[in-house]
Design a protein around this nucleic acid. Structure first.
Lengths: 212, 212, 212, 212
DNA sequence: TATGAATGAGTTTTCATTCAT
DNA sequence: TATGAATGAAAACTCATTCAT
């Protein structure tokens, strides 16, 4: 039933799971869940198909682990943002958005986000985890900050949760653009520039104000 | 099988393709491209599996057609928006955003957008079509409008394309939220309210201005 | 994703399931459940692998169906036997055993029985069905017949259920022998002769009786 | 890992193979050949997967060894039975059957027999070994004893080999029942009672004899 | 000797696609 | 045109077997 033949394997370690997940993240981001072949993940990780099953029970499990793992550092960042709550609102906002731009630029959140969006119907738990652990945390932190600023009379009246979404939206669109349209040759979006301009606009409005 | 009293006014030939695409849109939106079974599409369309192949050569072709078809009306709307270029900028902006909210609320663009995002890597042509025919048109129209308003001294300085993205972003986020998080029980986003508040903020800024 | 190439299939019918089950019975009997490859079943049935799944959801389902199907005719026979309950016990016994020999000789019960025995632990439901629908029916019928004969003073005292097992045992051993040892070249067992001799012995005892 | 107080008197080397075979017997009896995972055998034996291969070349080899090993003691018993050939036939028969009941009740022959029956087609050598070393020995011994008794005028005319099968059959059926139907909740068979009643019936016949 | 991580052939199952009717 | 039975390539997953340690 088995084989004979040539030399097979070499090493053995505890980094395997992480290596596999890194490979999986890339493949999932490229092909989506259903389109990803575990064999490709294995190849990318420099491992055999079977080795994956040494660490993860199913393809779904791998997918979940990828999403899960990509959350950890971001959650910390979000918490840090939430803790930053001091000083005048514009400063706070600049700080928060700056943090988010950093995240978005230096981690593969974009790819994972795309996966979550694309597979939300097939894997509701993923959408749930992503929402509960990341999105809702961020939104809540922002919402509170906005509400506080409103209370202080710094920020105009309005639904603070919607304000939170408004704040985050361009960043997300930037990320999605990068994942969706840049690869097909559409002009890239400079997320940092977008964020900067967004901040200014957000704070002061789009319209010029004639000198009183 | 006829002997039942129900009227047999099944539409014929001409509507078939449209019916199939409608069914396909629903199934693709639910399961994604790979997850969608043509058999389900057929069942949903009240048609045999084979019949699909009478009109479309492959599953990909069906997918393409779905995206393509969902574009047509929107493109018109975009063009209409583009044509609306008159009057003071705020009025224009309200008009445009209003149109987009209507579109987003009354058509399944949300579902299709999600598909395009999720499968962009697997079907770059889709992303391209979607971008070229819809996104870039809308962005361009907005960019031009912004630029014109800047020329007129109505709008502050800044990259008009980024302004365009800023304008659209919250709407898109709303749509994505609706497709991704609402189904898992997250609090819904009231897109109309979001748009309204977004407009106000955009025009006047987030910050309260002390009376001079 | 699919193929091109040469002509594929021919006919189409309602006999398919039966054909598949016949093939499956043979393959299962030869290789056991786990050892049987559905591909072989398909080949034997002159059908493609996929075709099996048109009629049965899983390999287990096929297995179940095989056992199930092999039961039907036998159950009738058992019921017929049970209905035969008349006349002096020796006549009844000859009748019953004759019937069973016929069954055993002209149907593949042997092969199926072997499968049930071999896979009882893996598929308890099979053992249960086999027991409830076939074995216990037969045993019960025999038990009742024996008990009646005891009441009539025809048969000696003793546990009638055990008598029933004694009656059936040599037949079953014959069948099992045929499935297990005959194929490896062991001398065959002439089940009819065994049955005949068994009947005589059973009725009169093994021992010669000196003339009073 | 030592620092706990439990005595560490693990047996060493010599017992390993036997321990592995004992574990294997259990697993094979539970799952059949194909269904048994060597990993489970290893776990059950308190040994690593690799260790099995230190003693046995393949899974088949392990299977063979299990069957082989389970034969040894039984063969002795059979030989002993064969040697017992003295005195009047009924005494002999009681002795022989008594021995067999003991065997059957106190060893796992039942489980092994089931395996042999179930895998006979896949592993003909097993069926052959089982037949040649055990079954045919027992049958032959019985056959000779019967023939001798016939010669002495103790036993009625008839094929002595078939008589031998008749003698053994109920015991085997009892064992098979225990392995097949008892686990699914069918009423158990009291093998000792079955044997006792079988002996009586065999010797004297099922039918009551009117007083001369 | 003993371990257990790693391998990869082999099997089930799915589903886009074909084609006889 | 329309049907749906049939096909078969593709991919997840299992587990006997190997071998570096």
């Amino acid at each position: 039933m088995p084989a004979d033949g040539a030399p097979k394997f070499r090493r053995r370690k505890a980094e395997r799971p992480a290596e596999i997940l890194a490979a999986a993240m890339a493949v999932f981001a490229e092909r989506g869940f259903a389109g990803a072949r575990l064999e490709d993940v294995a190849a990318r990780a420099g491992v055999s198909k079977g080795a994956i099953y040494l660490y993860f029970a199913t393809k779904e499990e791998v997918f979940r682990a990828v999403v899960d793992q990509s959350l950890a550092p971001d959650i910390e960042a979000v918490k840090a943002m939430a803790a930053a709550h001091q000083g005048p609102f514009p400063d706070l906002l600049r700080l928060l958005v700056g943090r988010m731009v950093g995240l978005v630029a230096h981690t593969p959140v974009g790819g994972v986000a795309k996966m979550v969006i694309g597979e939300a119907r097939n894997f509701p738990e993923l959408a749930r985890v992503w929402h509960d652990r990341l999105v809702s945390q961020a939104v809540e932190a922002l919402t509170l900050a906005v509400a506080a600023a409103q209370a202080r009379g710094e920020v105009r009246a309005g639904d603070p949760r919607l304000f939170a979404l408004q704040i985050v939206a361009p960043l997300l669109i930037g990320v999605i653009w990068r994942e969706t349209f840049t690869p097909i040759g559409a002009p890239d979006v400079d997320i940092e520039a977008l964020a900067a301009q967004h901040l200014d606009t957000l704070l002061d409005g789009l319209m010029l104000r004639k000198a009183a």
